[in-house]
């Protein structure tokens, strides 16, 4: 389980996160934020495994990623 949160008001709509998601889960919203950009959002949270590549690519620290801790065998 993973959870990705987008801080919409900080997003400048550069779309770099959409480029790096290995599963192509990130798209740009239809609506605009207060800065006038279409903020990034995730389409299907269940498919996300929390790799955090999107967060590492984001120049504006819009994205936070949480994930279940790996079970130690």
């Amino acid at each position: 389980m993973a959870r990705v949160t987008f801080r919409e008001e900080r997003c400048k709509g550069c779309e770099l996160c959409t480029l790096v998601c290995p599963k192509g889960l990130i798209t740009m919203s239809e609506h605009i934020n207060s800065m006038g950009f279409h903020p990034a959002t995730i389409t299907d949270m269940d498919k996300c495994n929390g790799c955090a590549l999107c967060a590492r690519m984001c120049p504006d620290l819009v994205i936070e990623v949480e994930r279940d801790e790996k079970k130690v065998v």
Binding site: M1, A2, R3, R10, G50, A52, A55, R56, D60, L61, I63, E64, V65, E66, R67, D68, E69
Partner: peptide
């Protein structure tokens, strides 16, 4: 759940 990516502490939270 554990945070795997968040803002570094020494990075100010301003746009």
């Amino acid at each position: 759940m554990k945070k795997v990516f968040t803002r570094p502490e020494s990075f100010n939270d301003i746009p």
